[in-house]
């Protein structure tokens, strides 16, 4: 199946962005960072109206917005819920995000939503489920999406490695990949995969966006188990892995993800600025 590419944005250069929360709407509109863009979880805006939805519409009027879904359960035992897809599509039509992405995970069983990004066993039957889920999602949206690699806390019984699994889904559906560097770093730490080999396995043209975020040590296991908390600043090893990824993949939109323990917006802007400098440097090297 073939779908249109993601829609063009306000800016034609690849830039860095940050997760957007309602408490930061005003600062987001006032930000003077060149090319800054914002990402939201569309599930948090599926209301009929009110200030939250209006605020997002106002930001979207002059900034690029991308949608990063968390509720579709793309690889789950059931196909993505039709009512959910309809609601997301209405929001897409309203806000016109530049990119749509979801997670290569599952989160729903027997019509119950588990509100967690659960890992998929990378087997042929599950691959078929994920392909079907992505196909249905893309059909409902009328455009291609990006799917994100999960954080692994445990080793899942699987027949193929994660990069191959996601690339196979991409080949069969036409979807792109969202490379979450923080997830990759944590998976490497928690279950022992080689993050650089993973990155090298990804053809640059397949990757449409990159995420970085903060993590925390598990309260029970300490630093033996690192949690994808999105509640702290991006850690140095993640910045380093981002640098490696950008060198291999070339410039890609980079998102600073922050969902909890929100700092002042200016603090987030500093992280965006740092990511932007890395993108700029890459471009300079390209021109040299």
């Amino acid at each position: 199946m073939s779908f249109p590419e993601q829609r063009p944005g306000f800016h034609d250069t690849v830039a860095a962005g940050v997760s957007l929360k309602p408490q930061h709407f005003e600062q987001a509109m006032a930000s003077r960072l060149r090319g800054i863009w914002y990402e939201v979880h569309p599930e948090n805006y599926l209301m009929q109206g009110g200030p939250r939805r209006r605020g997002l519409r106002q930001v979207a009027a002059d900034r690029d917005i991308s949608f990063h879904g968390v509720g579709a359960s793309l690889g789950g035992p059931d196909l993505p819920d039709a009512d959910h897809l309809k609601a997301i599509r209405q929001l897409v039509d309203d806000i016109q995000p530049v990119r749509l992405s979801e997670h290569a995970v599952w989160s729903s069983i027997d019509q119950t939503y588990l509100a967690e990004l659960l890992p998929l066993p990378r087997t042929q039957p599950v691959l078929l489920n994920l392909v079907a889920g992505v196909d249905v999602y893309q059909s409902a949206m009328g455009r291609t999406i990006l799917i994100e690699n999960p954080t692994n806390y445990l080793t899942v019984h699987s027949d193929m490695d994660e990069a191959d699994f996601l690339l196979e889904v991409s080949d069969r559906t036409g979807c792109g990949l969202l490379l979450d560097i923080n997830n990759l770093y944590l998976s490497a730490h928690n279950v022992g995969i080689d993050p650089k080999a993973y990155i090298k396995a990804l053809p640059p043209k397949k990757v449409g966006e990159i995420h970085i975020a903060g993590f925390d040590a598990d309260p029970q296991f300490g630093h033996r188990l690192l949690i994808d908390s999105h509640a702290s600043a991006v850690a140095d090893p993640v910045w380093s892995l981002l640098d490696y990824a950008l060198t291999h993949l070339g410039p890609k939109p980079v998102l600073i993800e922050r969902d909890a323990n929100l700092p002042e917006f200016s603090v987030l802007e500093q992280e965006v600025h740092r990511a932007q400098r890395m993108l700029d440097r890459l471009r300079e090297l390209d021109h040299a």
């Binding site: 599930e43 599926l46 959910h84």
Partner: peptide, 9 residues
């Protein structure tokens, strides 16, 4: 009464 919709709003 676990959640049935794929958003918790």
């Amino acid at each position: 009464s676990p959640p049935r919709q794929r958003t918790l709003t």
